[in-house]
Each structure stands twice: as structure tokens, then as C-alpha cells.
Computed example of a mutant assay.
Amino acid sequence: MLIKIIDGLNEAVGRVVSCVAAIFAVLILFDVVMRYVFHLPTRWGFDVTKQLFGFYFIMLGGYALRHQSHVRVDLLIERLTPTWRRWVEVLGYPIFFFPFAWIFMSKSYEFALRSWKQGETTYGAVQLPVYPLKMAMTVAAVLLFIQGVSEFLKLVLNKEN
């Protein structure tokens, strides 16, 4: 049940966040047309698309892990039997993944909280708030961590996606 809830949450977040790609594609196209066709570049276009891309990239970590789309070093385990490969992955989660994800969660939370308290903004021509993007890092870290729990449970319980 827990596995289905976590997988479903990251699936839903991934599908919703993937729509952001269309939004920033339209914004980039708009900015390019304004700049090169009408010679009226926007002051905000670069900053907004940069923040949207950062949001898009960071928020899809849990979704990517759910679909086994993360970069992996399979050179070491590709020659192992499926059983040995599974056990190497089972050990890899508590040794490598969970400590990394915990540090990512705790440090991104501190980072976001400091930004929120300072009312941090970009330093460009248009001063956009930065703290929403930094808060998204914390949410993304939590989503990645709980998806790691799901993947770990699947390995231990020998369940398929």
C-alpha cells in the first residue's frame, strides 16, 4: 500500500510538472520573437525561464527514480546475476542513497528557510523572488527520498513496479 501511494504521488507530480516544459518553451519562443523580430527584448524572459527550468529539473527527481531513469554505474553490476544485482542495490540504498537524500533534504530546507526569511530575489533587471524555487528544492528532496523508500521496499520485498 505504501509503495503504491509513493509511486502514485511521484507519478502525479511528474505528470503535472512535465507541463512546465511546455510553459517555458512558449516563454522562450515569445522572448526570441520579441528580441529578433520586433527588436524588443523582454527584461524578464531569461530570469523567468531559468527559474522554470530549475523548477522542472529539480522536481522530476522522484519521478525519474520511479522510472529508473537516473544515471547508474552499471559497469560494476551488469555481469552479476539478477539476485546478486538486487542485493547490491539493496545495500546501495542505505549506504549511499539514503544518506545523500537526507543531507539533500536537510540542507535544502535550511537553504530555503534562509532565503524565505531574507526575502531573497534575483539580481537581474527584474527582481524575481528566489525562495519559491528554493522551497521547491526541499519538496523535491522529500519526493526523491520517499521514492527511494519505495524502490528500496520493492527490492527487499522482491516486487516489480
Rank of each mutant, 00 (worst) to 15 (best):
I77V: 08
I77M: 04
E78M: 11
E78K: 15
E78I: 08
E78Y: 12
E78L: 08
L80W: 09
T81P: 04
T81Q: 09
P82S: 04
T83N: 12
R85Q: 13
R85C: 06
W87K: 04
W87V: 02
W87T: 01
W87P: 01
V88K: 06
E89T: 08
E89D: 13
E89R: 07
V90T: 03
V90Q: 00
L91Y: 07
G92C: 05
Y93E: 01
Y93P: 00
P94W: 01
P94D: 01
F96C: 02
F97S: 13
F97P: 06
F97M: 09
P99F: 05
F100N: 14
K107W: 09
K107A: 14
Y109G: 14
Y109K: 14
E110F: 10
E110Q: 14
E110L: 12
F111D: 06
F111G: 06
A112M: 02
A112H: 01
L113Y: 12
L113P: 05
L113E: 12
R114C: 08
R114T: 13
S115F: 04
S115V: 05
W116D: 05
K117Q: 13
Q118V: 15
Q118D: 15
G119S: 02
G119E: 03
E120T: 00
E120F: 00
T121W: 03
T122N: 03
T122H: 02
T122I: 05
T122A: 04
Y123Q: 15
G124V: 03
A125R: 09
A125M: 11
A125K: 11
A125N: 10
A125E: 13
V126D: 09
V126R: 06
V126G: 09
Q127H: 15
Q127P: 10
Q127C: 12
V130T: 08
V130S: 05
V130K: 04
Y131A: 13
P132I: 03
P132Q: 06
P132A: 07
L133M: 15
L133F: 14
K134G: 12
K134H: 12
M135H: 07
M135L: 13
M135S: 13
M137C: 14
M137R: 06
V139A: 00
V139T: 00
V142I: 15
V142W: 04
L143Q: 00
L144M: 11
F145E: 03
I146Q: 10
Q147C: 10
G148T: 05
G148K: 03
G148L: 05
G148F: 01
V149A: 09
V149T: 10
V149D: 07
S150P: 08
S150W: 03
S150V: 09
E151A: 04
K154L: 05
L155D: 08
